[in-house]
Write a protein that binds this DNA or RNA. Sequence first.
DNA 1: TCCCATACTTACATTATTGTTAGTTCCTCA
DNA 2: TGAGGAACTAACAATAATGTAAGTATGGGA
Lengths: 138, 138
Amino acid sequence: MGKTKKNSTNNINKEKIMAQCTETYAMNMIGTRWKLAVFYHLKKGPLRFSNLKELIGEVSDRMLTLHLREMEEDGLVIRTVYPEVPVRVEYHLTESAMELQPVWDFLRAWGRRHRNLMTGVEPTPLDLNIAYKGPIAS
Amino acid sequence: MGKTKKNSTNNINKEKIMAQCTETYAMNMIGTRWKLAVFYHLKKGPLRFSNLKELIGEVSDRMLTLHLREMEEDGLVIRTVYPEVPVRVEYHLTESAMELQPVWDFLRAWGRRHRNLMTGVEPTPLDLNIAYKGPIAS
DNA sequence: TCCCATACTTACATTATTGTTAGTTCCTCA
DNA sequence: TGAGGAACTAACAATAATGTAAGTATGGGA
């Protein structure tokens, strides 16, 4: 996230896997701590930095910035600066990012079901129609 | 993965998000370095430790063990020990893990498309039928 | 002139994840 | 007696990710 050491075994492994395995490439793009939260809030429409931060709740400025920067580099969000005073900066998802919707839907449905299985609660059927009724809490 | 410090801010944030957000819960289960590789090879059938290691290629014993242990705890793989000499240990995916197949398919298709977009190569349509033709390399 | 808000940076501290190397255990067979 | 293979485990080292606290730039308005 911050700096990476290009020639570390760690990084070499990562690159090697990503080059061979498209799933991993995709996972690495969407899998870190605050990214799903960013997707979740931005998919409803553009938001400025401060709003996003407020909505997510527990992120620090730094963390949010880092994640947004990476998502921007990765072609997942677009950053627009309005030169007002004080500055206004808005973020919105790219079309490509929007296409991830089915993944979120599915992960949500599967996750709920699997959690139920694990905790011994009666399992929910793996039904996508249920998935989007509520807010982020499930 | 190794030991976690239960009461670190880091861990508290993680738990808090997972409790609220089913997508994140699911992501954390399948998102670390070698897990997709494990899924990929195990979905075709059970494998013993050494085979799995060989197939993946660059993992160390320790890393593979750690990931498998976590996946076992998470209800994603099942470990069977055959008390022969030398020991034979086989791993296979649980039913719940098998149900992740659509996620892998989609991530693969999306990833390929997105990578093309990013590198300026002519984009592939987001077509799942293409997704499973070949081996892991795409 | 100084304060305000927004959207950051910087420097540093802590945790988590990944990697390396060298054992260990178990029984069998030479 | 001792080597051998499978599947680990322990101890340690390095890198990456996350978190905290304080500061910066900007121009407008009191």
